[in-house]
Simulated assay, not measured.
Amino acid sequence: MTMLLTAEGLCMRYGGQVVFEDLHLAFGAGAVALVGRNGAGKSTLLALLAGLDAPQAGRVLVCGHDLARGQGARAALAWVPDASVAYDFMTGDEFLRMVQALRGCAGPHRALLEGFGIAAYLGARFGDMSLGTRKKLMLAAGLMGDAQVVLMDEPTNGIDADARAFLVDQIKARAHKRLVLFSTHDRDLIALTGARVQALPARDA
């Protein structure tokens, strides 16, 4: 199996607390659920894998490219945070266009917008949206294009049942040739997507 995402010897500490010590992970195509109790370091690990934070030791490879060097790795990577990262003054369309420009990818297909129920909010400003609508725009931004590695932090938080069912379909449709790695406490999401479970040790983050 071709490895799409590899973590080699990751180390991360906050103060005197060790979050990861010499952590090694390797993932090929498929759906993978990152699980662990609150404070185990799921969000910290995803931030490292997405390149938002740099590990204190070790490295991350995306499709064979070192995440810390050049654009090769970042071009193959999409990231869906738990909370909105858009400015309140941005419209939904402006945010999606910004992500499209940053990633150099195609914009979302109409089916993606309609599946998440956000087509009507493209002209709305984030400051006027509900938390659920903001989250669905984050999901659409992460799932548009052809990224080989999609990372999602608690993707079902705050979304309605229809959007959740559509998300399950999107994960399953991508998993045969891409990696979709998501942190979750949602056991039904794991079962419905057929995701492999990757557990983290119980450490405080």
Rank of each mutant, 00 (worst) to 15 (best):
L151P: 03
M98S: 04
L143F: 15
S130D: 03
R103C: 06
G58C: 04
S84K: 06
G123D: 15
W79D: 13
A57E: 13
G70V: 09
V85I: 15
P55I: 00
A47N: 11
A101M: 06
F89P: 01
L77F: 07
C105Y: 00
R74T: 04
H65W: 04
L61A: 12
G72S: 02
L61E: 11
V99W: 03
P81K: 09
V150H: 04
R134G: 12
S84M: 04
S84C: 13
L67H: 04
L96K: 00
G142F: 05
R134W: 10
A86L: 09
R59E: 05
L61R: 15
M144W: 08
Q56T: 12
A76P: 00
M144G: 05
D146N: 13
L77W: 05
F126N: 03
R134E: 12
P55Y: 00
L151F: 08
D93H: 02
K135Y: 12
M129W: 08
R103Q: 09
V99I: 13
C105D: 00
V150D: 04
K135N: 11
E114H: 09
L61W: 13
L52R: 15
L151A: 12
L46M: 13
R125G: 10
R125E: 11
A68Q: 01
H109N: 11
A73H: 06
R125W: 08
A120E: 05
V80E: 01
A76I: 01
G72F: 05
A147Y: 02
D66K: 12
C105I: 11
V85S: 05
L48P: 13
L143N: 13
A78D: 01
G115F: 10
G70L: 13
G123Y: 04
V62D: 02
L137P: 09
A76L: 07
I118N: 11
R103V: 08
G64V: 06
G70D: 12
P108W: 03
G145L: 11
G72I: 08
L52C: 13
D66I: 12
V62Y: 14
R125I: 14
D53S: 14
T91I: 07
R103I: 05
A140T: 09
Y121N: 06
D93L: 07
G117L: 10
D82T: 15
R59S: 14
A119C: 02
G107M: 07
G72P: 02
Y87R: 12
G115Y: 09
L143Q: 02
G72H: 01
F126E: 02
G145H: 10
T91V: 12
P55V: 00
V149C: 06
A106G: 11
L143P: 07
L122N: 04
V85G: 00
G58Q: 12
A73V: 05
A83V: 11
